[in-house]
Amino acid sequence: MTEPMVEARGVHKSYVGVEVLKGVDLKVERGEVTCLIGPSGSGKSTLLRCINHLEKHDAGELRVDGELVGYEARGDKLYELSDRRICHERSQIGMVFQRFNLFQNLNVLQNITVGPIKVKDVNEEQAKKSARELLARVGLEDKEKNYPTQLSGGQQQRVAIARALAMEPKLMLFDEPTSALDPELVGEVLDVMKDLARSGMTMIVVTHEMGFAKEVADTVYFLDQGVIEESGDPKTVLTSPSSPRLQSFLSKVL
């Protein structure tokens, strides 16, 4: 039996006095798509950000690909990882943000190649070649010379996905990837994500798109007030929820 891609046990996280995660347990198997749903402020994004160490969790155990996030266990002590090791860990996890966060000073192609060139020392020609393949995959091969401001939200988000994929990550994190999009642009981004899921990528998606969760997810976790209220396969969780909180949440979003 292979170990899971992501495993969280009792993860806690507080920001100045406010406890956002109050002991979260989660397991994501390789090649699985996991959706995190829940009301705003429930800790979904924080959990995602802890997984690639954009935030440091305070307590609990968080493992990605069998390795502790941000620490190394030697003997009975945990040693904080050096910045270089943390950068290396992050480079293997792709992240897609709600607000796209494409580099405004770089054009589409440069946005995609900058990671491989700077972080993985890929030579420029090779990086460009793979970037063009990725652009074709997200349907934007004719936009490589454009700057982010010249693209629609949906196009920007597809470039952001290509940018994350260029690092050849073993895990992709999506933080509400369609929440900042006009309704008619949501579909094009979800299509790219579905395609990615079919290709066998391990994905954790924070989303409000229940249709997407139902169609694509292998497991759905419902977070509320910093704890996992309910989890399981999407059909059970989303169509016949057992917890009253999830029932009331679903009645509001559907």
Partner: peptide, 15 residues
Amino acid sequence: GQTEAAISLGMTRAQ
């Protein structure tokens, strides 16, 4: 967000 995106690609602070 620009910094976060760069860091999430694995770039160092200096990069």
